[in-house]
Every structure is written in structure tokens, then in C-alpha cells.
């Protein structure tokens, strides 16, 4: 059927199927209530979460799970703040105990200035996590060679950055991203660097399976509205990808016939 799909357009990671192709983070919001409202407005089914020490001096502080509820969203625990494979394994073992699931996001960063992934350590951490039974979605640089190594090692999704985390600069290397999308058999998600709706649409037009973002929504003047914009952008980009874009031409091609002119 043309124009409307007879089967729903879904994507599957580690055996779990989702309709929404927008994964949102839960950091940097004014409060958890705004965070939950933004995740709803984005139509997200998956949210990333971090794991940290409980504040013992004030256990009555608001808790994420009371607002962004695990029965409504699939939690994707991350390893933000980990700089070694061992840190990542320790963090995600705790996350698995806290949440009881094995689908996780691995990110092993190099330094705090640009937060670019340490790919050598990321690959090592991935192997440790897979040996420990995790299903690992891997945040990575936009390097097709390392992306292939991650896939070969058993990553269940490849998540190259568009630009550094929180930079909002959009997709910096369309060529590399295209190569990664072309070669990868598991889902590819642009994770990090999206700044506004057109960045998300571009990622989807290139053929990504989904987009993961946090700051672009959380730091918008109106996060709920931006969440909605991102939802539409991801849908629009996906639809454009499936529709297949027209060829680029050097010169104009008139839309109205040139014959039959008076």
C-alpha cells in the first residue's frame, strides 16, 4: 500500500519492539515533573537514566521513578561518568539490580572537556558487559571502523554521536554516519549532538533507526514544546526516508509544463 503502511513501522532492539523512534534523556530538567511531561510530549517509549548514590542526608528528596515511571517507559541505564570498563560493569550491575533488566547504554568517555568516547576502552567494556549477560547499546564516535568492531563484538545497537554531548551542533559528519548506517545490521541511533528539530529530521532522513537526545529538549526555552517538535521531526524524517527523496539536480526543472503556453 502506498502512502500508508499496512504494517506498523516499528523497530526492534535486543528483541524488544518499539513504535517511537525518539529516545529521550532525563537529565538537566527543572524538575522530574517537567521531565516526565517532556517524555510524554516526545512520545518516547524509552528514556535513559543514570545511576548515582542516594542522598543519605535527605532521603525524602524527589525520586525519578516517582515521576518518570518504569511501568510507562523502558529505562535505559547509562554509564555516564565512567571512564573505564570496570567502572561501567560495576555501574550497570547495580542498575540491573535496581531495575531488573539487561538492556543498557554503554558510554565510556575520555575527558570532561569534549566528552568524546574513548573507543578502545568502550570496546573493552562492551566485551566485559556481553560476557556478563547484558544487551548493550553503545554510544560511540562517528567512526565506521570502530562501529564495525562494536557490532562484531555483539553490540545490540550502534549509537554514533552527531556532535559532542550537549553541544547542540547537529550532525557533523554526514558521510561517516551514512557509512555506518549502510554497513550496520543492528539498529543505528544518532546519540548526542542534536540541537533542534531539523537535526533530528536529518538523522532520520539518512536512515537512522532512531534518535537519542537530552539537552536539545531540556535546555529549550519551552522543553515541552521542543519535545513535541522533536517527535514530529523524527516522524517527518522517517517518513521522508521511507518515501525516498527526489534526486538532486544541478539545474531547475519546471513544475508547470512549458508546452501549451499562450
Amino acid at each position: 500500500m502506498t502512502g500508508e503502511s499496512s504494517t506498523e513501522d516499528t523497530w526492534t532492539v535486543a528483541g524488544r519492539t518499539f513504535r517511537s523512534r525518539l529516545i529521550v534523556g532525563t537529565g538537566k530538567y527543572k524538575d522530574y515533573a517537567q521531565n516526565a511531561a517532556a517524555a510524554e510530549a516526545a512520545g518516547a517509549e524509552i528514556v535513559t537514566v543514570a545511576l548515582r548514590r542516594v542522598n543519605l542526608s535527605d532521603p525524602s528528596q524527589p525520586m525519578l521513578v516517582d515521576h518518570v515511571k518504569p511501568d510507562r517507559f523502558t529505562f535505559l541505564p547509562n554509564t555516564a561518568g565512567c571512564f573505564t570498563g570496570e567502572d561501567a560493569v560495576r555501574t550497570l550491575r547495580l542498575a540491573r539490580e535496581a531495575g531488573g533488566w539487561d538492556l543498557v547504554k554503554l558510554e565510556v568517555l575520555s575527558n570532561t572537556k569534549h566528552l568524546l568516547p574513548d573507543m578502545e576502552e568502550t570496546l573493552r567494556a562492551l566485551k566485559l558487559l556481553i560476557a556478563d549477560g547484558f544487551q548493550v547499546m553503545v554510544y560511540c564516535s562517528d567512526d565506521p571502523v570502530y562501529a564495525q568492531k562494536l557490532e562484531d563484538a555483539g553490540a545490540c545497537a550502534i549509537m554514533p554521536l552527531g556532535a559532542p554531548i550537549g553541544s547542540g551542533r547537529g550532525i557533523q559528519n554526514i558521510l561517516n554516519l551514512g557509512l555506518i548506517i549502510e554497513q550496520t545490521k543492528v539498529p543505528v541511533l544518532v546519540d548526542a549532538g542534536v540541537g533542534t528539530a531539523s537535526d533530528a529530521a536529518l538523522a532520520m532522513e539518512l536512515g537512522c533507526d532512531a534518535v537519542l537526545m537530552n539537552t536539545a529538549i531540556a535546555e529549550a526555552k519551552d522543553p515541552i514544546r521542543m519535545a513535541r517538535a522533536m517527535k514530529h521531526a523524527v516522524i517527518a524524517g522517517r517518513e521522508a526516508y521511507l518515501a525516498g527523496r527526489m534526486p538532486r539536480r544541478m539545474y531547475a526543472d519546471p513544475s508547470s509544463p512549458l508546452s501549451g503556453l499562450i
Partner: peptide, 24 residues
């Protein structure tokens, strides 16, 4: 979690108690 009740604490134990917070 199922073992909290039967886990006796000892002097010098190092305990970490964590939870999910917002993150990207």
C-alpha cells in the same frame, strides 16, 4: 534485594546505596 534480610552487616563494611536519577 531478596537477600537484604539475611545479610548481616559487619564492622568495616563498605556499603554503596544507589538509585536511578536523571541522565542522558
Amino acid at each position: 534485594r531478596s537477600a537484604y534480610g539475611v545479610t548481616a552487616l559487619c564492622d568495616g563494611d563498605r556499603i554503596e546505596i544507589v538509585h536511578f536519577i536523571g541522565g542522558g
